[in-house]
């Protein structure tokens, strides 16, 4: 590849590096502000505002959240479990659905696609949904209720369908059929390996959904040992704010309640581990990976 510098490629490179660097910086600054605030004494935060460097260092925000460390770890565990199980199950169903819906020889694919899409337009609201899950399906305080509603979304199914269609040429499908491969075999042996970037993307979104969820705990979980992380953290913060706004619980608390720095600490704690997921997903965004697989 030792050919002469291509026309405009230098210019393009400059544009790319500068604009990406600027965007990155813009995304990073507020985050650093939050990190700094989470390490600042609450009083200084209220009095002097937020700084990029803590004016008075303190861990009180974190200490308040980790008051009962075993509970935080437990909540991490619940969220970790639901995220892993939910993402794997969801991926399995979504890829199958996506595969079926993009098959040109599947006569009713548009009808089904519409039925799936339709649910994003109309919904019955919270109340009937809640009644169904608690009264009829009796899912209160189960892991099932933390996993089931997040398994799929119409958006991810249609997205998957699109990814598969562009990654798997029609001919591959046909030639496999001629060779006598069944539909499920084509799906598992050919379609899945070819669609890795799409699977990685959809998997990432599924995992993010589970990781950020707190509503399901809020609605269906009474058992404090089954709270998801985000819900646990919200509760700590809300309880503390409530106590701060109503004036203690009849006991002199001795010391201020770090309402502000705690919120910031929570943002950090909630973000932490899931960030590690992204580099893992990135591995599948390397060009050429898919094409190589088709040829091979």
């Amino acid at each position: 590849m030792k050919i002469k510098e291509e026309k405009y490629s230098g210019l393009f490179k400059w544009i790319a590096y500068i604009s990406v660097a600027l965007t990155t910086l813009l995304c990073l600054l507020p985050f650093l502000l939050i990190v700094s605030a989470s390490l600042t004494r609450n009083e200084a935060l209220v009095r002097e505002g937020y700084r990029l460097w803590p004016q008075e260092f303190s861990l009180e925000g974190y200490r308040m959240i980790f008051k009962f460390p075993e509970r935080v770890l437990h909540a991490y565990g619940v969220t970790g479990l639901t995220t892993v199980v939910g993402t794997l199950l969801g991926l399995f169903f979504i890829t199958m659905a996506g595969y079926v819906l993009q098959r040109k020889d599947f006569r009713y694919r548009n009808v089904f696609a519409f039925l799936i899409y339709f649910t994003t337009l109309f919904g019955g609201g919270l109340v009937p949904w809640y009644i169904l899950f608690t009264k009829y399906l009796k899912l209160t305080d189960t892991y099932a209720v933390l996993i089931f509603p997040g398994l799929m979304t119409p958006f991810l199914i249609i997205l998957m369908k699109n990814f598969i269609r562009s990654a798997v040429p029609e001919e591959v499908n046909e030639s496999a059929k001629i060779d006598g491969a069944g539909d499920f075999r084509i799906y598992s042996r050919i379609v899945l390996p070819l669609s890795l970037p799409g699977i990685a993307t959809v998997g990432l979104f599924l995992a993010l959904g589970y990781w950020n969820d707190w509503l399901l705990s809020s609605l269906f979980i009474n058992d404090t040992d089954m709270y998801q992380l985000q819900y646990y953290l919200y509760n700590v913060i809300n309880t503390v704010s409530f106590m701060a706004s109503m004036g203690g619980n009849g006991v002199s608390l001795g010391g201020s309640i770090p309402t502000e720095s705690m919120k910031m600490a929570m943002a950090i704690i909630a973000t932490g581990p899931i960030l590690l997921l992204y580099p893992f997903v990135q591995r599948y965004f390397v060009k050429g990976l898919t094409i190589g697989a088709v040829k091979g």
Binding site: M96, A97, I116, V127, D183
Partner: peptide, 24 residues
């Protein structure tokens, strides 16, 4: 086989979305 592969998804949307639609 294709129908079979679509069934979990359809079931999901019937339970999670279509049944509660009475709420409209």
């Amino acid at each position: 086989m294709l129908f079979l592969m679509l069934i979990p998804t359809l079931l999901f949307f019937v339970i999670n979305n279509y049944l509660p639609m009475v709420g409209i």
